[in-house]
Each structure stands twice: as C-alpha cells, then as structure tokens.
Design a protein around this nucleic acid. Structure first.
Length: 516
RNA sequence: GCGGGCGUAGCUCAGUGGUAGAGCGGCAGCCUUCCAAGCUGCAUGUCGAGGGUUCAAAUCCCUUCGCCCGCUCCA
C-alpha cells in the first residue's frame, strides 16, 4: 500500500480523463455548446465520489470525536455561508487591491508579468535605457545587469548612478525607456493593468457602480465574518473551529489540468481559533492530522507529501506565523512534481482584526476569554482543502492499469470513497438465482449504494464494476440456494470467498467502516 | 496572453473534394455455472462551431470555441 509508484508506470492524464468521460465521472460543462474553459460537471459516478469525499471530511472534522494536542476533544461547528457577500468583505480581506494584481504585458515578447514583481535597473537620466527583470529571478537579474553593462560599455554597474526601482513607481515616460525582461528594444512594456481574478456581478436588477458584488474567491471570509455570531450563539470557547464546505470562484488566467485549476470549485475549510501563544502547537497538530486524513481515505502511497513552505513564499498574512504547509499530490500532470490539495496556514489574527477594523467596531470585537479574564483576537490555523482537487487525486490514485483483466484497468478506490459499494449478481439468469440476488440487493440498498444487474455475462458485469471502482461483488451461484451462501469477489485481488447470504449486510458494514 | 499539437459514434481511431466508417462499448433477445465468450438484431453522429471557395467540403481557406503540452500566471 505504501510502495511509491514509479512515474513510468503511472497513468497518463489522458487515460484518466478518458475513463472519467467514458464512465461518467466528469464531463465538460455545457459540452454540447462546445464547453466553457475552466468549468466541469460531475456525472453520476463522479458526483457520488465527490460526495463521499466531502461527507468523510465533514464527518471526520465536525461530527466524529477528534482528540487535540491538549488531550481534549477538538470542538468544531459548521456554517454554510453565501457566495455573494457585502463587497466590503473583500476590501477587509485584502482581495480587492491585492487579489486583483496589476499585470504588465510585453508587446515584443508577448510575455506577461506581475507589475509588482518587476524591477528595473539603469541611470536616472531621462534618455537612459532601463532594463527590467523579475525580482525573484536571479538569472534574469544577472542578465539585465549584463545587458546594461554591454549597452553602456562598462564593466559593472556604478552604485552611485545606477539605481534599481520598482516598475510600479515609474512614470509613463520612464516606462517608455524600459527594455522588457525578454525583449531587445525599449518601450514594449504596457502600463500596469488590472486583471480581476474575482468574478463580478450585480445585486439588484439595475446595474450601477453601487450594485457591484463579487462571487467569493474563498469560503474563509464567510467564516471570519460569522465568528462573532457563532461565539454568541453556540457556547464555543477558544480553542474551537468553524468548518464550511462551499463553492468559490476565481477567474483564473489559465485554467489548466482538467479539474485541478478550474474557475468554479469547491473548498472544504476549517478556521480554527486559538490562543495566540498556542499557534505552533496547533499548527503542527493540524498539519499532521490533515496529512494523516488524506492518507486514510486512500492516498496512502508515496504520491502524497507534506511540504513546509519556505519563508519567502509565505502569503502576506503568514509572514510572521508559525508556518504554512501544503499537502501535495503527485498528479500525472505535475509528476515528478506535486500539486496542492490542501494548505495549512497560521493566519495569525489578520482576518478577525481586519474585519473588526473595517466594520468600525475595532477593539470592541476582541474575544473575551473568561478563563483568563482577558480580551484578545484569537489566532487562526486554517486547513483549507480543495474538494475537486481531492476528488481528482482520488481518481488518479485509484486508476490502476492491469493488462491481465478484461477492462485493462480498475479503479482502486478506498471502500469508503467508492461511488458504488457493492454489486449483487446472479451468476446466470435462471434457477432462482436472479430472485435470490435481487432479495440481497434490496436489503443492502436500504443502507448502501449498491447495484444489481442480471444482464450479459458475469465477466462483463465484473469488468464494469472494475472501472467504476466497486470494491465488492456478491454473486449468487448454483450452490447459493441450497447452502445459503454467496461468493464475494474482491476488486483488487480478484480473489473470491464464500460467505453466508444472511451475513452479507454486516460483512459489508464491517468492510466499509474499517479505515485500513 | 504566447508557441506547439489535437478536435469524426460513449471510447480508440480510419477516412486528402464525390452516398460518413471500423473495432470496442451500449441496448434487446437467445445462450451462458465465475471474470468484456458466442449468435441474432437494434440504436447512436450539429465530422467542435460559424463563415467562405466549389456543381459538390469531414477533407481546401478564414474566424472562433474547446482539450492537451511547453512558457507565463497561480493573492
């Protein structure tokens, strides 16, 4: 189970996408009109898979008992907030102004850069050329300096006359003498332009500037703005968490890689509120707990890693925090690299403070810790996961080519995630077998997603279940009527065992409950 | 946004200007005692879309949309 899979034996993304289409896991949105870039629909099996993922998450973080690092049960309550919120929310959160990054295009090289990442070097003289580079790219910086020296026929820049400036601080005339990072002539860089990553809409039938609103780019802010409501109404005490599953929208520049980066997606977020000094302890605990959780639902192979962020890639709200880490999965399209499934970040008190300030109540909104007789803004540990990315990881991980079987492939879902838990089949369509099988099917169906099929050959029916990832098939054969037993066919091993027909329900319950 | 590749049945694909096809899959029936067996039959297409050239376009031209890969981007 924990054997790392060599990249060469891993499925191609093409084959995963093809199976998703063929078996009804995922379709392109509005496909009959040619689709729409960055939007995806889930078909019958995909919907079941994603629901199982979300239900497992909700059940495991909100409903079931979880013991925290302090030895006490972790207290988490749920909310379900709106997608459209008061636009002031996004000013407070920093999404308006920060999220909408100004970009600069290069007319010559056709490249696009974030304006606030561009730096120029050169003389201040009004006719001197300025050479631009991306501040994070040392090679580009070296190249810009080299080009500068070559252009001015000098050996090295003179600190007294050559200055570095941010591109965003340049005047229009200064920009005209800039040479882009990948350009040869000056004047090819455009002025910084806003590319809004938030979807805009209007509230009310009449459009005006005042009526503008945004589709939320993350579910977190609904939790933060409801923090005080939850504290006032639900008897929670720090440390506690608020969880939410919901849609979020980002107008991505380049949606790519199937459902991995889509414009409409679903998040599973917890904001866990703690005393500031306990941040390191809770951060580490959540990071490890969340990693363990993803492993428990079927991502236990070497394709899942926990990666601590370097200090220089931390978000603005996390610079001084206890840390940020990603749980990452090696997708076929990222291999040998990894793509993020969930981020765990110590957001300090950034969000609660920001909302307290922007709504005008300020310090009055500090949380009162009765035990300590103290007021403060709790710190936050945020485990924020992508439901669509998680579903995609489950699909990629489950995809197991097997030339030995008729389907050529089977989906090795963890039983808890499997869209169909079991199928019940008569071996052949006669001698009372269909009737007995249907009886078992109907009793199982009271509790589980199961399937019954009496058509075609048994091999064909098994093959179909392999591609749907159904872990167990119960088959009524010639001996079943007299012995009161059925066979169980195990998806992964193809092994069969015989169990009592009246025990099938409890047998299945056991298998689905086990987290192995 | 740039560059490259691709788009024909549910899937994989053939079809270079002249009646839209194959294999697999699907459905129905027969058959079938454990892994897509066989037989018979059936259904399935805006040839991604729009426009143009032509007597005639899946095929040539233009535009556009979508998918994949590489850049770029990913608060």
């Amino acid at each position: 189970m924990s054997e790392p899979v060599a990249p060469s034996t891993r499925p191609t993304m093409e084959s995963v996408v093809s199976l998703c289409r063929r078996r009804g896991f995922i379709f392109q949105s509005s496909e009959i009109y040619g689709g729409i870039n960055g939007f995806w629909d889930y078909g019958p099996l995909g919907t079941a898979l994603k629901r199982n993922l979300k239900q497992a998450w909700w059940s495991d973080v909100v409903e079931r008992e979880l013991i925290g690092p302090d030895g006490n049960a972790v207290d988490i309550v749920g909310v379900d907030c709106t997608i459209i919120m008061n636009p002031k929310t996004w000013i407070a959160s920093g999404h308006v102004g920060g999220f909408n990054d100004p970009m600069v295009d290069c007319r010559e090289s056709k490249a696009r850069y974030r304006a606030d990442h561009l730096v120029v070097i050169g003389r201040t003289a009004p006719d001197a050329r300025l050479f631009a580079f991306l501040e994070s790219d040392d090679d580009a910086k070296a190249k810009a300096i080299k080009t500068l020296c070559k252009y001015e026929r000098i050996d090295s820049p003179d600190p007294a006359s050559h200055t570095m400036r941010l591109f965003t601080t340049l005047s229009e005339t200064d920009r005209a003498r800039c040479v882009g990072p990948d350009a040869s002539a000056p004047g090819s860089l455009t002025e910084p332009r806003q590319f809004s990553l938030m979807f805009k809409t209007n509230v009310g039938a009449i459009e005006s500037d005042d009526s503008s609103a945004y589709l939320r780019p993350e579910t977190a802010q609904g939790i933060f703005t409801n923090f005080w409501n939850v504290v006032d109404t639900s008897r929670v005490k720090v440390p506690f968490g608020i969880a939410q599953i919901g849609k979020a929208f980002r107008n991505e520049v380049t949606p790519r890689n199937f459902t991995f980066r889509s414009r409409e997606f679903e998040q599973m977020e917890i904001e866990f509120f703690i005393r500031p000094e306990s941040a390191p302890e809770w951060y580490r605990w959540w990071r490890d707990e969340r990693f363990r959780w993803w492993q428990s639902i079927g991502l236990g192979s070497g394709n899942l890693i926990l990666r601590e962020h370097d200090r220089d890639e931390l978000a603005h709200y996390a610079k001084e925090g206890a840390g940020t880490s990603d749980i990452e999965y090696r997708f076929p399209f990222t291999a040998p690299g990894f793509g993020e499934l969930e981020g765990i970040a110590h957001r300090a008190d950034f969000d609660l403070k920001a909302h307290a300030t922007h709504c005008g109540k300020g310090e009055k909104l500090r949380y009162f810790d009765q035990e300590r007789n103290e007021r403060y803004f709790p710190h936050v540990i945020e485990p924020s996961a992508g439901a669509d990315r998680g579903t995609l990881a489950l699909l990629c991980e489950a995809y197991t080519p097997d030339p030995a079987r008729a389907s050529g492939v089977y989906m090795k879902f963890h039983p808890r995630m499997a869209p169909i838990k079991a199928a019940v089949y008569p071996l052949v369509n006669k001698e009372g077998m269909p009737e007995m099988a249907e009886g078992i099917y109907r009793s199982l169906r009271k509790k589980h997603a199961v399937e019954f099929d009496e058509k075609q050959s048994i091999g064909k029916r098994y093959a179909r279940m392999d591609e749907a990832g159904t872990p167990f098939c119960f088959t009524v054969d010639g001996d079943s009527l007299s012995s009161g037993t059925v066979t169980v066919r195990h998806r992964d091993t193809l092994a069969q065992e015989r169990i009592a027909a009246d025990q099938v329900g409890s047998w299945l319950d056991d298998k689905l409950d086990s987290t192995a």
